[in-house]
Write a protein that binds this DNA or RNA. Structure first.
Lengths: 114, 114
DNA sequence: CTATTATTTAACTTAGCAGTTAATTATCTA
DNA sequence: TAGATAATTAACTGCTAAGTTAAATAATAG
């Protein structure tokens, strides 16, 4: 996976990783804090691996404090991803307009107007 | 890959597929239209597969016109993806604020103010 | 029916991801 | 130093994704 944008989207393409980011958006957390909600379903090394994917995408930074590794959210890649999607805003607003127009012509011929 | 959001992000995690979407945002195109920019680097079946990934994510719809399959962009999954990211807007605006504050304290002590 | 164009499917290879358990490293505390 | 806690690394498995070439299907045109 060559480029940053691909790495970011790939990192987001997993519900566990998205949940980790959601948790980090509420503040710093250690690896075991982050792992705790998942330990019924997966092992700690699995969470470590997910964090590594998020780190490589630049979405998470890991610090050191004694034996803990406090993690923080880094939003810059998210901004880049949204930025890439913004280029489609025109296209999707057109689609909403078409839907709008369609719904209007649809109601025009029925008894539901008014 | 269970859920729609994961499928959408996974579909976006490839530069070829993003380029296909970019082309479709400029209007309807057939499979060979879409494939043409890539045929130096990959085969036509490879493009067919990429399109299938985009279809399964709901990002592309394929019609029929004689032997051609005209493809169109479907932006709804993109809206969902942006919607998911919006929940981090608060977090990332805080980051911008912190950066801002940092830059201000940094300039305060230098000769660069004014 | 045959040939041509557009696209897909089949069968296969290669590589990487997500998970596991067991062992290792890092750090603090007694 | 020994033991406990936090986290990572190693080695392995199973699955899926991305690409290939060759064959099959869909539709048109002669």
């Amino acid at each position: 996976m060559q480029d940053n944008l691909s790495r970011t989207f790939a990192a987001l393409a997993d519900p566990t990783r998205r949940a980790i980011l959601a948790q980090l958006s509420r503040g710093e957390a250690t690896v075991s804090d982050l792992a705790q909600p998942f330990l019924k379903n997966m092992s700690l090394p699995a969470v470590t691996k997910h964090l590594k994917v998020l780190e490589k995408a630049g979405l998470v930074s890991k610090g050191r404090h004694a034996q803990w590794r406090p993690c923080t959210l880094n939003t810059e890649p998210l901004r880049d991803a949204v930025g890439w999607m913004e280029q489609y805003r025109i296209a999707w607003e057109e689609q909403l307009d078409r839907l709008d127009a369609y719904l209007q012509t649809k109601t025009k011929g029925t008894h539901h107007d008014l």
